[in-house]
Every structure is written in structure tokens, then in C-alpha cells.
Write a protein that binds this DNA or RNA. Structure first.
Ligand code: ZN
Ligand code: ZN
Ligand code: ZN
Ligand code: ZN
Lengths: 172, 172
DNA sequence: GGGGTTCAGTTACTATATAACACGCGGCGG
DNA sequence: CCGCCGCGTGTTATATAGTAACTGAACCCC
């Protein structure tokens, strides 16, 4: 062991912990993390990049042959509601929330300010949660009398790995 | 006159100026603001809220009966390219850029950092361009070695008008 | 006139998301 | 026991958003 493959098919350790945390969180919220919802959450968490609803649907069908679009969309709605996943609007895709694993005592469950950095080159998408960004945004909004709710902040650019690499290694 | 109706059907004054500015801008960029593109731009600018591609298509058909999805999407792509409009990702809709009217001498045409404030209640969408937000974002990204390109920043919340109003004036 | 480029017309299609109705289950009051 | 209701899900159909691929016209250059 000591890893090696790093394959996505198995790594129950971390996944199991995340699912347990999600369960606890739902309990506190009085919501039911049903089998279907757990399956969809697991699919999202297993993936290393954001997955579209139909990609999730395809994978879900392996476990649940009758699955259809509403099946996965309803589960996604629930998971979004619970703050267990986020939607990346620019990609029409879904990712697990990096903070969902932590079991915050009894405090604020639910949505937290977050930002996505999306690499134009390799597609890697990382979630950050920078208070300064949230604050600057709230500030700017307040200046025009706007009361801030949820914010979508998604930056396209080049990740550290791709930024150092020569911009074009391919082509003519 | 002296206004009154404030109807959307006519207000050629401001619209004409914006179109002229757009034309100048395209000239400088070596791009052609063709009839079709001008029509689509006018439709976007006339609207008081973001319009989806198919809503634009419907309106465009009045002037151009043969119009089909590619017709409007190609025009939108061009206008986005030129920085004359923006896409609101959360709405899958398009709005005119508030800065597109200004004829910046010969300087930076093209994309500028911007943010949208979208009222959950009345749907009004306003574009702001707060340097502090852009800076905070660039800062946060740099901290993880990410090189920032285009940023999508869209805040859902309540506009000044709707925030002061009692949250629920309707219902039982 | 040949050959490029750019723009637009047209057809067909893929991808994303939701509406609407039906069923099963568990709880609860009659 | 039975009808009812809320909820999660199955199932079918449809709405909305976006693209691919081919065609031809106009223009420019040589
Ligand atoms: Zn998160
Ligand atoms: Zn990268
Ligand atoms: Zn703008
Ligand atoms: Zn409002």
C-alpha cells in the first residue's frame, strides 16, 4: 500500500469520513441523507474534478439502473441546500465543498462564502474561502445599498503548475 | 415629453449614442459591427434586464425572420469578445456593459473586471466595477500561485428598494 | 478568374434542466 | 382498520441552453 495507484475507484478512508460528517450535519439540520443522496454525494466526492449532472447520472446508473435526470437533480438540490456541495456555474458542474468534512460543533451549518479558481489549461478547480474577498464584495455591495446573499465567485486562469509551463507546448 | 412613460420601446437618444460608441470601439479593434450584430446589441441594450439567448432570438425574429440559435449565439460571441456585453452566468443571460458607452481614447478596449448584483426579489441586475474586489481576488489567487484571467463575480441578494420593503408583502 | 477570409443562412443535434404525474412508505387521527 | 398526508422516489415528457457542420454570398487580394 502506502498508496501508489491513487485511483479514484477506492479510497474509502477519506470518503467514509466525509460521508459520516455529512450524515451528522444532516441530522442536526433535521434533513435525511438518504441512500440515493449519499450515493450522489459519494460520486461527487470521488471525482477529482467538477462533474456535470449528466456525468453523475451516468455513473449513478451503475448502482441505480432506473435513474433519470430528476433523480440526480433532486439529490443535487438537496446537497446544495445542505451546503455539502457547490455548483460551478461556469462549468454547469458540481463539486464537494472542501469544508463539508469538518464537523463544526453546532454552529452555522449551511452555506459559506467561497471562491473557485479554475485552470483554463488543465481544468483543475480549487475552492478557496478568502474572507478578504467576501468582505470586499460585501463592502462594494453595501456602497450601493445592496444586501448580500449568496455570491458566485469563479476565476478562470492558470493554476500554479500550468502557469510555469510554457504557454503552448503543442501545435505547429 | 420630458419623459413620463419611460417605456422600453423607444428611447433612441441613449441607445443611438451607445451604438455609435460601440461602432467606434469596433473600428479601433479592427472588428466589424455588422447589421446583425448591431441589431442584437440593440436588443440587449433596450432590455432593462438580462435576456437569455432565446429571448433575444424571439425578438430578433421580428426583424430577421430566418434567425436561428446560431444566428444569435454568433452575434453574442462577437459582442462578448468586444466587451460590449457580459454574460450573467447565474441567469444564462446577457446584459450590455455599463462601460461600453464610454469611448476610452485609444486605451484598453476589451474586458474589464466587473461584478453583478442580482436582486432575488425584483430581478434587477446591476453591474459594478469595484477595484477592491478585483484586487482582493487577485491577491487570494496569487497566494496559491494562481494566475488570474477572467473572473465571474455575481452576488445574489436584495437591492436597495427590495431590502427596505417588508420581506413579504404578499401571501395570506 | 482562382483562392483566401469573413459573415450569415440552414439543418440537425447535443447538453442542461424542469414539469407533471404516479407510487410506496411511514406517521397520525378518525 | 382505514383514510389521509408529507416525503422521497420512479417515470415520462418537455423546456431551455448551446454547438456542429455544411452552404453560399460578399469581399479582397493577386
Ligand atoms: Zn465550500
Ligand atoms: Zn492547470
Ligand atoms: Zn462591463
Ligand atoms: Zn429588488
Amino acid at each position: 500500500m502506502t498508496t501508489g495507484q491513487g485511483s479514484a475507484a477506492e479510497m474509502p478512508e477519506e470518503l467514509a469520513r466525509a460521508l459520516a460528517g455529512a450524515e451528522a450535519r444532516c441530522l442536526r439540520a433535521g434533513a435525511q441523507l438518504t441512500e440515493l443522496r449519499r450515493q450522489v454525494l459519494a460520486l461527487v466526492l470521488e471525482a477529482e474534478q467538477p462533474l456535470g449532472a449528466y456525468a453523475l447520472l451516468d455513473r449513478l446508473k451503475a448502482q441505480r439502473p432506473g435513474a433519470a435526470p430528476p433523480t440526480v437533480y433532486r439529490a443535487l438540490d438537496f446537497l446544495l441546500e445542505q451546503g455539502l456541495i457547490h455548483k460551478v456555474e461556469r462549468l454547469n458542474a458540481f463539486v464537494g465543498c472542501v469544508e463539508a468534512g469538518y464537523d463544526h460543533g453546532g454552529g452555522h451549518d449551511h452555506h459559506h462564502p467561497h471562491q473557485f479558481l479554475i485552470c483554463r489549461d488543465c481544468g483543475v478547480t480549487v475552492e478557496i474561502s478568502d474572507p478578504a474577498v467576501a468582505h470586499a464584495l460585501a463592502d462594494a455591495a453595501a456602497r450601493v445599498g445592496f444586501r448580500v446573499g449568496n455570491a458566485t465567485v469563479e476565476v478562470e486562469g492558470f493554476c500554479a503548475a500550468c502557469a510555469t509551463r510554457p504557454p503552448e507546448a503543442a501545435g505547429a
